[in-house]
């Protein structure tokens, strides 16, 4: 049923195209000026030896940057950390947010309080989030360790210990990313036609089955879009981590974007850094396309 657009009889495909273009044009103008051009310039720089020197003249050097990048083990190590971080963040955020959205979509008391509370972390600048959590994680003066010690457990040096640093920052990322995903899912749940849920209930489906067979399929586009973007953003973000750990301890939280930033701005080799950016784009798109294609297929199969 979903082969083409609302196939009204008598409407030619040319008229449709014109309509589509008219709808898209207002969005196109700012995108071309402020996004496509800088993006093209950025992608292109990866093939040059551009630096940030005064009056720098960038030469086209083909694939040299990429060849050099292949042997850069620090980059690939940070790439690995980035993957772990991004997958963990997006999956955990989705799970936590789904649970919360389901709770908020019921008739529990307290839910309006939760709904407001759930939004606050979202409205906080990342730097404040980072500093606030540094206080919580403080090994000497933090409430978390105080609570552990109160029940007789040993104190943990959350951000300083090699094994807990990455999980600790992931928790913070989930804390600050969950509200947004929750809101998106909640909005999606509101769209699920109540007739379908009621029909399923009449058929004797319990809550879990209703969720699995009615709500979840209807939510698929939203889940898909928000997880994919969550993955990209986590992969791309470094502000939160930079304030919390500066990539430490011992490089355990050195995210690829932090690495690229250092090369671009601190080392001022913007050409080489852009090559890193190009490689990251390709890598992330590969990972994503596997996910997206698989999900699209599933979606089609279920229809």
């Amino acid at each position: 049923m979903s082969a083409t657009v609302v196939s009204r009889p008598g409407v030619s495909s040319r008229a449709q195209r014109r309509e589509a273009i008219a709808l898209v044009v207002p969005a196109m103008a700012p995108i071309i000026v402020f996004s496509v051009i800088p993006l093209m310039a950025g992608v292109y720089l990866g093939f040059t030896d551009a630096t940030l020197r005064r009056n720098d003249v960038a030469d086209f050097i083909g694939l040299d940057n990429f060849v050099r990048l292949m042997g850069d083990r620090f980059f690939w190590e940070s790439f690995r950390i980035g993957l772990v971080w991004a997958v963990a963040c997006s999956v955990l955020t989705l799970l936590c947010a789904m649970g919360l959205a389901l709770l908020l979509n019921t008739d529990l008391r307290l839910k309006s309080l939760t709904r407001v509370l759930a939004l606050i972390p979202w409205a906080m600048p990342p730097v404040v989030v980072a500093i606030m959590w540094r206080m919580i994680y403080s090994p000497t003066a933090g409430p978390l360790n105080a609570a552990l010690e109160a029940v007789g457990l040993p104190a943990v040096n959350w951000l300083g210990d090699f094994s807990t640093a990455l999980p600790a920052v992931i928790v913070v990322a989930v804390w600050s990313g969950m509200p947004q995903t929750t809101v998106l899912l909640l909005a999606g749940m509101q769209q699920v036609p109540t007739e379908q849920l009621e029909a399923a209930a009449v058929d004797g489906a319990n809550a879990a089955r209703r969720f699995w067979h009615v709500t979840l399929p209807a939510l698929r586009p939203v889940v898909l879009a928000s997880t994919a973007l969550d993955f990209i953003w986590s992969f791309n973000s470094f502000g939160l981590v930079y304030v919390m750990t500066e990539g430490g301890p011992g490089g355990r939280t050195m995210l690829p974007m932090l690495f690229t930033y250092l090369e671009a701005f601190k080392n001022r080799n913007i050409g080489y850094a852009s090559a890193m950016g190009d490689v990251l784009v390709i890598a992330v798109l590969l990972v994503l396309s596997v996910y997206l294609i698989q999900q699209f297929r599933k979606g089609k199969a279920e229809r």
Partner: peptide, 19 residues
Amino acid sequence: LLSQVFPTILLILPLFLIL
């Protein structure tokens, strides 16, 4: 996807010049 994946940091300079 491309616009979200490409590091913002590398877009800053061209963007600044355009503005």
